[in-house]
Design a protein around this nucleic acid. Structure first.
Length: 474
RNA sequence: GCACGAGUAGCUCAGUUGGUUAGAGCAGCGGUUUGUGGAACCGAAGGUCGGCAGUUCGAAUCUGCCCUCGUGUACCA
């Protein structure tokens, strides 16, 4: 009597992969069309590279490793490892190295594409997402960095963010490394730990940073993070630097306002590297000050992005409003985009001295945030529904359908089977603006009945007037 | 990766100290209305209680392991 065991296939999407519905896709389309417009205006070329690359072309994975490291999706094809791209910068470096003789110098390109990361998903973070990149290849000019920030600001602004809803924080790696030199922090592990600690300042506060620079910190979930174990003098030096330079007060409650680039005299000549960073920032801000986004692009010395390959200017766009998840709970949202200068990425292919700078952002996160703005509405067109009364009159229904579609009105004959009530429920469900009744009675009179589904209003009209009447409703 | 929390119908959830046949609201389906949606009423249906193993006479409930989701943290090319 053993009952046959039903084995049902899973209805779930793989972890970190999601279905995306029309509302989100329409906003994404809107964002994409704005990005393209801005890119054309700024003179960038459109490029597309494949989803898969040879693992060693885009990764930092050791050839002796049997399998590419965690973080990427890979498989072995014949004898070579292939990986799905995890960003658009690495494929760009590969493309530039391959086509170095043909491309203009400098080379400006933009790219939109899906990227994949095999890592734990978080709020607003998935394992498959759409990324946008714009890069300058082959120029050291700070004008390039400045333009990227301006175009980032313009893009966000065009996509519906007010100027007081976002900020682009700018820093230069050389400044912070200069400070570390001055404080005689030479151990590479300590330097990295210090960078990461300072990068968290705005989230965990000055005391949190102190703990991370010292012995370590226990977060509110009870998890312990090991610290950099610097000495007191070194910690005090970094803390003083943060206090002098931070855009926020110590409680991180109040934004001190738009900080103009004006490094304090006391920090001058800290170290040669520091001065070089300051000079580069001077060139950068000289240009952004001339832009209409000068108030949104601010100096923020505590910004030190985690990405390893950055060599100079770095920047990051943050939203200034709170973002909630589906359950209405506020979440740590992080940045919507960022970038910086990477002058050494292409020389590993043997093309020496190709300085680059680029910006990238994940469209999904921006879309996620935009969806929460109450005043943000994207119009979506829904079809007028022609109801079916009797299959024998199907030619009449098609007559109306053709008339509407040739007038470019989204329309359909009810695609299912069922009574009028069911048809009305369908039309209501898909948010159709109106339905058309064209039964025996109407056909005899040469009229159609048009029911407005928003108001419930119903009027009988001559067929010739149908298109005009519908245009009034939609 | 680490930590905390959660997983019961399509969705949101209830389910007592372990005790017959696991409940509700909403959605869906059928009907009241064979030509009128968003309201009401009636009816029927819908469940391997995340999975596997264990304890027990008996497990949605207790234990262990695993999976998935959420949040934080770490990492982030």
């Amino acid at each position: 009597m053993a009952k046959e065991k039903k084995i049902k296939p899973s209805k779930e999407t793989p972890s970190g992969f999601i279905d995306r519905k029309e509302k989100e896709l329409l906003i994404r389309d809107f964002v994409i069309s704005n990005i393209k417009e801005v890119m054309i205006k700024y003179g960038f070329q459109y490029l597309e590279t494949p989803s898969f690359e040879y693992t060693d072309s885009i990764g930092k994975f050791l050839p002796d490793k049997d399998r590419p490291g965690e973080g990427v999706f890979s498989f072995k094809d014949e004898n070579k490892w292939l990986s799905l791209r995890y960003d658009l910068t690495a494929p760009l470096a590969r493309y530039v190295a391959k086509n170095y003789n043909e491309i203009p110098k400098p080379f400006k390109r933009y790219q939109l594409g899906t990227v994949w990361r095999n890592e734990k998903p978080g709020p607003g973070r998935f394992r498959e997402f759409l990324q946008f990149d714009a890069d300058y290849v082959g120029t050291k000019n700070p004008q390039a960095d400045a333009e990227l920030c301006i175009l980032l600001a313009e893009t966000l602004s065009k996509c519906g963010l007010d100027k007081n809803e976002f900020i682009i924080r700018v820093s230069n790696r050389k400044c912070f490394f200069g400070l570390l030199d001055f404080l005689e922090i030479k151990n590479e592990n300590q330097r990295i730990a210090a960078v990461r600690a300072v990068d968290k300042y705005e989230r965990i506060g000055i005391e949190g940073v102190k703990s991370l620079l010292g012995k370590g910190r226990t977060d509110k979930s009870g998890d312990f993070t090991k610290g950099a174990e610097l000495n007191k003098k070194q910690i005090d030096g970094i803390v003083a630097y943060i206090k002098e330079n931070s855009l926020y007060d110590e409680e991180r409650e109040n934004f001190k306002g738009s900080a103009r680039f004006a490094p304090l005299a006391v920090w001058d000549d800290l170290s040669p590297l520091y001065s070089e960073g300051i000079r580069e920032l001077g060139g950068f801000f000289g240009l952004t000050e001339l832009s209409e986004y000068k108030d949104q692009i601010v100096y923020s010395p505590t910004l030190v992005r985690g990405i390893e390959y950055y060599t100079g200017t770095t920047f990051e766009a943050n939203l200034l409003f709170k973002v909630k998840n589906q359950k209405g709970k506020e979440i740590e949202f992080g940045s919507v985009g960022g970038g910086g200068r990477y002058d050494n990425l292409i020389n590993r292919f043997g093309n020496l001295d190709v300085p680059c700078t680029g910006v990238s952002f994940g469209l999904d996160r921006l879309v996620f945030a935009l969806m929460q703005k109450k005043d943000f509405k994207i119009k979506s067109v829904k079809p007028v529904v022609i109801c079916i009364f009797d299959q024998k009159n199907i030619e009449n229904y098609f007559g109306i359908l053709n008339k509407l579609r040739s007038s470019n009105i989204s329309s359909e004959i009810y695609p299912g089977e069922g009574k009028l009530k069911k048809q009305m429920e369908y039309a209501n469900k898909i948010q159709s603006p109106c339905v058309i009744f064209y039964g025996d009675d109407e056909i005899k009179k040469g009229e159609v009945k048009l029911r407005n589904l928003k108001t419930g209003e119903e009027l009988s009209i001559k067929i010739e007037n149908l298109v005009n009447e519908i245009r009034k409703i939609i």
